[in-house]
Design a protein around this nucleic acid. Structure first.
Lengths: 140, 140
DNA sequence: CGGAATCCCAACGGATACTG
DNA sequence: CAGTATCCGTTGGGATTCCG
């Protein structure tokens, strides 16, 4: 995808580039699926439930551009296009998988921490820091 | 930060949550800095060059909410607030660091792949954004 | 089937300005 | 020092339509 992360100082660039690539809503899921097996466009789309055609296309292009996957066009009728991770892509999938393992293993802790935080601060909030109805902070 | 990633199918949720937290422009850099040592607000801001106070604040809040860091307010004058990763936060820093190592080790390959891709379809433009101007500053 | 092209809006995030 | 509050441009990405 695009370098959503604007200008970043020299040394942070690589990590920022990778994160701007995989840190979006869908790309990590795409990599997971393709790390299992090569897939055709619509097969992949079906397995990444909820993704739009537009976003899938642009995500695939971005991954292809950075060398993480290859797009193989079969000259058949109707058209058939296969996407598969390159060796480089499978390498990327590893640290990404580690992050996923962490996430799965600690989902409970995160949720608990959130619940505690939200209980601590004002009343119930679930997902986000919002405009926040300002409150008489301290003093029960 | 915010769950920028909308609704995602059940089993992918944890990874999407983590990525929506750290996958933004700045959070991973914040975690890196705090993984080295606890820092006060402005010290941290100085070390994450270019970040705005608003974004730093909201990022810190998000990390605090998920239990990855703690905010320690010292009742001094002038005010002094220390941010430090929790044990949980240091755990998160590990897979994140692995990703960074991958990024650093393969920055060249990515750039080469991009150059090759862009050369290949240099019919005016690639499907995505060009590289961006960069500024000098601090580390990763 | 595998896209490209458009439209559109909510959000991310930068730049001030102000405060305890 | 460590934040809040706002205004506002930019971008991500969903929905829809059209094409080879």
């Amino acid at each position: 995808m695009k370098p959503r992360h604007g200008h970043i100082s020299e040394n942070c660039r690589p990590i920022s580039e990778v994160l701007s690539l995989i840190g979006d809503k869908w790309t990590s899921l795409i990599i997971e699926r393709l790390n299992e097996q090569p897939l055709r466009f619509n097969a992949l789309k079906r397995r990444v439930d909820g993704i739009s055609q537009k976003v899938l296309t642009s995500s695939l292009r971005a991954l292809e551009r950075d060398g993480f996957l290859e797009r193989i066009e079969h000259p058949t009728v109707p058209p058939s296009v296969e996407y598969r991770l390159t060796a480089f892509g499978h390498e990327l999938a590893q640290p990404l998988s580690a992050l996923k393992q962490f996430a799965l293993a600690n989902a409970g802790r995160m949720e608990a921490a959130r619940a505690a935080y939200d209980a601590r601060n004002s009343s119930g909030e679930s997902s986000d820091r919002r405009p926040q109805p300002i409150q008489p902070a301290t003093m029960v």
